[in-house]
Amino acid sequence: MAVGKEIRTKIGSIKNTQKITSAMEMVAASKMRKAQDRMEATKPYAEKIRGVIGHLGMGHTEYKHPYIIDREVKRVGFIIVSTDRGLCGGLNTNLFKNALQSMQEWQQKDIEIDLCLIGSKAGAFFNRFGGNVVAKTSNLGDQPTVTDLIGTVKVMLDSFDEGRIDRLFLVHNEFVNTMTQEPRVHQLLPVEKNEEDELKHHWDYIYEPDAKELLDVLLVRYIESQVYQGVVDNIACEQASRMVAMKAATDNAGDIIDDLQLIYNKARQAAITQEISEIIGGAAAV
């Protein structure tokens, strides 16, 4: 019986798609767990280094590092962290929307923007959209290292040192939980003073070799660790978002299969009924 051959083929192909999406969902779920662990592992370093910088800033009021001083803004830099791959729902789109919004705020004040892009999706987007891209890196994989990011961060830090940019922002997705990922824009430079850091320290360090040099290194490490944290955070978001998107796709495929199955059954039944009525009609005529 040739009824509904196209429908059967279509059901078959949707079933194949469903298999792929459910496999991707499971892969994303396991990767997400690992990414979350990595996210947790980066926290102690950032906390410690923040503590030390807070203390240094307090103890040495006579030396102000350029990274701490607020200066007049003529040009700003954005480090935008995106994913390398697609099929992760609206994650990147939401992030770019958010980034563009805050970029627009600066543009309205006639302030130009330098971009530093991490991840190939950001590269593709700003290629089409336009923008002054000064540094770019992509294909970091699931386990990025700080070493992978040093170059891109250094480009931005150098232009801050040379006065080409006066403020530096980091844009990335923040992992709230599996269902929620929020795009965040936060200021890297100048380093914002945390009020909580104003603890009562009654002692000062012995510095080897001297406070200024140590602060230089610490601040660079701090910025790097912030960017690294952003990247790791973004990977956890990517996996979570992909998991959710693929789950939705699998469910939708199931719905479509059910619908098609119903149509197929009806068509088959209609064909049978027609055949029977034809036979009966034929028999009656004889």
Binding site: V134, A135, T137
Partner: peptide
Amino acid sequence: SAIAAKEAA
């Protein structure tokens, strides 16, 4: 690595 990042851009 900074130069590499610039060149990529």
